[in-house]
């Protein structure tokens, strides 16, 4: 297992893991905006930059992003060097100019001493930081209904042709993962609307709660040999059923703890 030094601490990290996990395991906080355990690392927000060196490099450092840098034996990592902090400050300053009204960016920038951007304010403030979490989770679901379109300053996240996306199943993974709540949806009993597309909801045959879209159930039905009926029952009822089965097998009555756990 590679042994490395992070901010003076000796850390062991398994082969094939990234520096970010090693830092966090050592209790060292690293800011990130585009990282999430459910998706592959991306390296887009550049907030997790750290300095890496080796004794034989004679003082020469290279700046890397911790989320994508594979751990190596013998490296010495500095997560708070002046140039690391300054790079993060500029990145946050730039994001604050883009998203001046976004609480997450305001708070993160504030923690680095940036309370007001030194750049030109975005005339059309947005909450989208283009972290790519939504498109990556959508790809991960196997749907790829949305993607980034255009490039450079004009880049944005959108469905194809900016029309209601034909492939979207209304699973809300994009909205759930969005760190700034930029992706909005409307939900009322029996109806859901996201990306301009309306979805009919499916009711749980047991409790009657509208918990999943019909399109979602259709999309997942048969995947990995799981029947559609499995998706039709809501998670809460499934858990209840499981608890009841477990209780029966254990030969006792159901306990309040299990009831609580099923919400």
């Amino acid at each position: 297992m590679p042994t490395l030094t992070i901010d003076g601490k000796t850390v062991h990290a398994p082969h094939g893991t990234f520096l970010l996990a090693a830092c966090r395991a050592a209790g060292i906080e690293i800011p990130t905006l585009c990282e999430h355990p459910a998706v592959e690392p991306y390296g887009g927000c550049r907030l997790c930059v750290v300095d890496v060196t080796r004794p034989e490099w004679n003082g020469w450092n290279k700046m890397v992003v911790a989320c994508l840098f594979p751990v190596e034996d013998g490296i010495i990592v500095d997560t708070r060097s002046e140039r690391v902090l300054e790079t993060r400050r500029v990145v946050l300053d730039l994001l604050l100019a883009r998203c001046p009204e976004t609480p997450l960016i305001q708070a993160l920038a504030g923690s680095y001493g940036v309370t007001k951007t030194s750049f030109v304010l975005n005339p059309e403030p947005t909450d989208c930081i283009l972290c790519g979490l939504c498109t990556r989770i959508c790809d991960r679901m196997g749907i790829s209904a949305i993607s980034s379109v255009d490039r450079g300053a004009g880049r944005e996240i959108a469905p194809p042709f900016k029309e209601p996306p034909p492939d979207c199943v209304g699973c809300l993974a994009c909205a759930e993962i969005c760190p700034t709540n930029h992706i909005r949806y409307e939900a009322s009993d029996g109806r859901r609307r996201i990306w301009g597309k309306d979805f009919e909801m499916l009711r749980c045959p047991r409790c009657g709660r509208a918990h999943i879209t019909v399109a979602q159930a259709d999309f997942f039905a048969g995947k990995n040999g799981v029947p559609r009926s499995y998706f039709e029952t809501c998670d809460a009822c499934k858990r209840k059923e499981l608890a009841a089965t477990a209780t029966k097998l254990a030969g006792g009555a159901s306990t309040p703890a299990v009831e609580q756990g099923t919400r």
Binding site: G44, R46, R151, G152, A153
Partner: peptide, 21 residues
């Protein structure tokens, strides 16, 4: 470059836009 940046990372996408300003 502002037109040709892919826009994936913040320093290039936002930095070039601000520099051009």
């Amino acid at each position: 470059l502002c037109e040709e940046s892919c826009g994936k990372c913040v320093p290039c996408r936002e930095g070039l836009k601000q520099m051009l300003h």
